[in-house]
Design a protein around this nucleic acid. Structure first.
Lengths: 120, 120
DNA sequence: TTGACATACAACCATTCGGTTGTATGTTGT
DNA sequence: ACAACATACAACCGAATGGTTGTATGTCAA
């Protein structure tokens, strides 16, 4: 247990990555489909290097993954990472509702194991 | 229409506010209940002024509101703001699912008006 | 009124961020 | 082999961030 510090590091990285409109826009595009870095760069009024750095920030945060295809590097969004950010916010909301006194994922895992109903 | 720029500004501010573990911790506390700024500051190994600035960042992002109570300033979390961040992430997820081609809130509002079925 | 507490804010500092240009390393097609 | 393209990365710069200390303002209690 007690990987709480790395969790916070990950949260820092993810929220930081999302705190820039260019990066959010890139993320939207790569969630819809794969795009090469230069294809992405074509959409913005800044240098290729700047866009490449934005992609790198998203990648370090785990929100995006790259896959080699010939001489291009195709980026696609990691929806699981987006969901993990959403679940942090859900935790905040639960805290507000007074539900949780911080029992971590343990009970949460148990609960979702029981709820085998509306999976999707 | 086209307040899209201010929306992005708000998104920038909210994600930025959340991209710091001290601020996330403060937000957790004030979502559970009201706390004065100095009561909050007592929890952290930094100056009062530093904590006061963190509170100000959360306040500017709309994630927290203050209320005067005597000589104290009681802060409480704004769960609606948390939800609005969550809904941005939900939009990203919808984009991934291929649901939305970006028709903004207009059709979304219409749709939810029609769908009076499974509300939750 | 005065002293103590709660808050706000300015000034300062080191570090990080978001951008730039330039250079190096692959990869492809001819 | 070579020219062109796609990517990565280093070095640099101005602005913003996260912290500090110090000072000003407001409110309560005696």
């Amino acid at each position: 247990m007690a990987d709480t510090d790395e969790d916070e590091d990950r949260a820092d990285a993810m929220f930081h990555a999302l705190a820039d409109r260019t990066r959010r826009d890139i993320l939207r595009r790569v969630l819809v489909g794969e795009h090469s870095v230069s294809a992405l760069a074509a959409n913005y009024d800044m240098s290729f290097a700047a866009v490449q750095k934005h992609v790198a920030v998203l990648e370090r945060a785990g929100l995006l993954t790259k896959r080699r295809k010939g001489r291009e590097q195709l980026a696609h969004g990691e929806v699981e990472a987006v969901r993990s950010v959403a679940s942090m916010l859900a935790e905040l909301e639960d805290l507000w509702r007074g539900r949780i006194a911080r029992m971590d994922e343990l009970l949460e895992a148990l609960e979702s194991a029981h709820t085998t109903e509306n999976q999707e």
